[in-house]
Design a protein around this nucleic acid. Structure first.
Lengths: 244, 244
DNA sequence: CGAGGGTTTGAAGTGCATCAAATAGTGTGG
DNA sequence: CCACACTATTTGATGCACTTCAAACCCTCG
């Protein structure tokens, strides 16, 4: 059934077929519309999730309604699995932000496997270490970069690994959501994008953005970063496969 | 020799004596003065470190000299170990900020042990999951709390787990450093602390701060947080022992 | 006592948030 | 295919929080 998708996940790399069979025996695949809440912060967890298609926002809410976006994940990403290490409750809420196909899987099967499959635990360690770095970098970005630079950096992530040539990219979800992902208000995003346009010569048409001179964008956005240019380690939502 | 310190680390909980012996065979203990740089971002890593005593700042620097503080760790904490998952280079620099006694240990011994000691890998997973949550919360704090609230939150962490009664605490390092730890400038810290004083009735004498009404401080500082009061999960520098 | 770093204070500037309103875009039913 | 309703985005005006630069103050320690 969905074995191929699961087998392709870096997290499950080199795991035995038996494990995939166990996992798939518990799998549900569901299509969800924008707005659907999948898990709620602090709720007891029995399942974790893999995104087949679409985008999912991870976030937390304060008593007075403010929300803090932890990440926005595309297909190929896993979430909810860390409940295993958090006393069995989800450490965040998750909401569909672009129509999505989601595989849900049993946490207890994963837990059991972690107890005696050292390949899986090693994968998990790498995966978490990687996330850790991305988090560090996220804090660095919020601290050192201004709004326009953060947007520039975000756009560079979207261009993928081929960064020499001109690019035409498309925002994968609403601008308002990009704004919250980058820790700013929609109005600020709009203005900062305008400023970025003036400074770097990018062209904007709705959700589509054309970058003729990637180098120029880079020197504008990446000057405040401790990593060299193709920093390509933007939060959790970048490819995991590049990790050796 | 220093086996007792190492055995007490949550990370090494329940590990076999043989492992401690291997580890200790490679151990160096050194005293360092304020200002000493222990490791440098991107340098190849062969050792990791345990803080016996003192405080250590983890940070990264940008080409143009700005620095981003990742964390400031007290005794009982481990750093440099994640180089194992980062292609063997340190993901940050580390500097002594209060005279310290540091144990340095072989990374390869740790690596070897991780390959066949599932207790250790489980500990490591828990430890990393915990750090992950703290990072999430750090971002939330920076996004939702203002300067005074962040300071209030920081002070509450210093009060420890007994949070019912009045407290007299002492800043463990320079105010300038607390400021950078909290992502603000020294001047902002000074002014924000003044504001906090007015709003919550705390008393300040140099590095010493007295809190008569912990409840008042809490309701001031924690109102923007997604976690209930004793959130006690401030970055990486809080005790790890409380984790079940 | 004097030097030097840490801390505070003042004045002025910048960036982002807020509130309010206009505009562009999208999907719907006729 | 058009008009309407509703949402996303932009724009304007204004305010507040934090930063910056500069100078004073204060501690500590030789």
């Amino acid at each position: 059934m969905d074995i191929p998708t699961l087998k392709a996940l870096p997290l499950f790399k080199n795991c035995p077929d038996r494990f995939f069979q166990d996992l798939c025996a518990t799998a549900h695949i569901q299509n969800h519309e924008k707005g659907k809440i999948l898990i709620i912060h602090e709720d007891p967890a029995t399942r974790f999730f893999v995104i087949q298609h679409g985008w999912v926002k991870l976030f937390r809410e304060t008593p007075n309604g403010a929300e803090s976006v932890i990440d926005i994940l595309p297909s190929g990403h896993v979430f909810g699995e860390t409940a295993l290490f958090e006393n069995g409750v989800y450490p965040y809420s998750a909401e569909i932000v672009e129509t999505a196909e989601i595989i849900s899987l049993s946490l207890s099967v994963l837990k059991l496997e972690l107890e005696h499959n050292s390949i899986l635990t090693t994968n998990m360690l790498k995966y978490m270490a990687r996330q850790q770095r991305k988090q560090d970098q996220e804090i660095e970005h919020r601290t050192l970069q201004n709004a326009s630079q953060r947007i520039g950096c975000f756009l560079l992530q979207l261009t993928g690994s081929e960064y020499k040539t001109a690019k035409k990219i498309r925002l994968p979800y609403d601008k308002t959501l990009v704004a919250s992902r980058l820790g700013m208000k929609p109005e600020t995003f709009s203005r900062a994008l305008g400023k970025l346009k003036k400074s770097t010569g990018i062209r904007i048409k709705g959700k589509t953005i054309e970058i003729d001179d990637v180098q120029q964008l880079t020197s504008y956005a990446c000057q405040m970063c401790s990593s060299q240019f193709p920093c390509r380690s933007f939060s959790r939502s970048t490819s995991l496969d590049t990790h050796r």
